Structure formats: structure tokens, C-alpha cells
Amino acid sequence: MGVYVAAYRLVDGSGWGEGILLTLYVVTLFSLAAWQRRSANTLPRKARQIGYLGVVGSALLVIASIIWMNVRQGDNRIAGIGDQPDHWWVHAIVGAVTSLPSLAAGHVIFYGRRPRSLR
């Protein structure tokens, strides 16, 4: 998801580039959800729900990040600065922040409570 946010800024304004990128993103997201549904075990309890919450949280942060980056770009235009590409570190921070809910969900699933018989 973080890669999508960074790549979106690179193809911003290119209609065909945005379409291709969005298609790849949606296919990747559905593939991830299908893989997660198939491979998630019932141990720990509610692993699937926790995983889905992580993906939804990351998706919401992707949307918020794209809105924030577009607002920043709009502020630059209003200030007369014009279109300037963001620094690489802005994209790195956005990528890291958008991955946090999914990483947290994975951590909870992997290190969650297990029945005593499996310890």
C-alpha cells in the first residue's frame, strides 16, 4: 500500500498511468485478501478478523495519505510555488505509516495467545 501511494504521486495527472496503477493495486489487494483468507488458521482466535482489520486500517491510511499529499500540492499551487515533487523521505514515511496497521495485525496474530496444548 505504501508503494502504491509513492507510485501514485509519480503518475499523478497521467490518466492511463493512474488507471493501470489503480488496477494493479486493486488486483493486489484482492489477492492479498484471498491469500489471507485461505492461509489464516483458526489459531489464535479471530486471526482472520484481526487480519482484515489490519488491511482496512492500512487502506484507510492510504486514502488519508493520498488526500494529505494532494492538499499539500494544492497549497503549493495557491502559494505560487507550482507543482514540485515531494522528497523521497516523504514517500518513505507515508509508506511506513500506511503499513503500520497491517504489521500490527500480523504481530498480534503471530504472537497472540495460544492454547496451552500448543505452547
Score class of each variant (00 low, 15 high):
G2M: 08
V3Y: 14
Y4E: 03
Y4S: 01
V5W: 06
V5S: 07
V5K: 06
A6F: 05
A6T: 10
V11Y: 10
D12E: 14
D12S: 14
S14I: 14
G15V: 10
W16S: 09
G17A: 13
G17H: 13
E18S: 11
E18H: 07
G19L: 05
I20C: 04
L21I: 08
T23A: 15
T23L: 15
L24Q: 11
Y25E: 10
V26W: 07
V27F: 04
V27E: 03
T28I: 07
T28N: 10
T28K: 09
L29Q: 15
F30I: 07
F30G: 00
A34Q: 07
S39G: 00
S39V: 00
A40R: 04
N41K: 10
T42P: 00
L43C: 01
P44C: 11
A47F: 05
R48S: 09
R48P: 01
R48M: 14
I50L: 11
G51K: 04
G51W: 03
Y52W: 14
L53H: 13
L53T: 14
G54R: 06
G54L: 07
V55D: 11
V55C: 02
V55H: 14
V56Q: 07
A59R: 06
A59L: 15
L60R: 02
L61N: 04
A64C: 09
I66L: 15
W68Q: 15
M69D: 06
M69T: 13
N70K: 13
V71L: 11
D75S: 01
R77N: 09
A79E: 07
A79Q: 10
A79V: 01
G80D: 04
G80S: 02
I81C: 05
G82C: 04
G82Q: 03
D83W: 08
Q84K: 03
P85Y: 06
D86T: 04
H87Q: 06
H87S: 07
W88I: 00
W88R: 06
W89G: 02
W89V: 09
V90E: 03
V90G: 01
H91T: 02
H91A: 09
A92F: 12
I93S: 03
V94I: 12
G95Q: 02
G95E: 04
A96D: 03
A96K: 00
V97E: 01
T98F: 08
T98E: 05
T98M: 05
S99Q: 14
S99W: 12
P101V: 00
P101W: 05
P101T: 01
P101H: 00
A104K: 02
G106K: 04
V108A: 12
V108W: 14
F110A: 11
Y111I: 02
Y111D: 01
R113F: 08
R114A: 11
R116S: 09
R116H: 07
R119G: 07
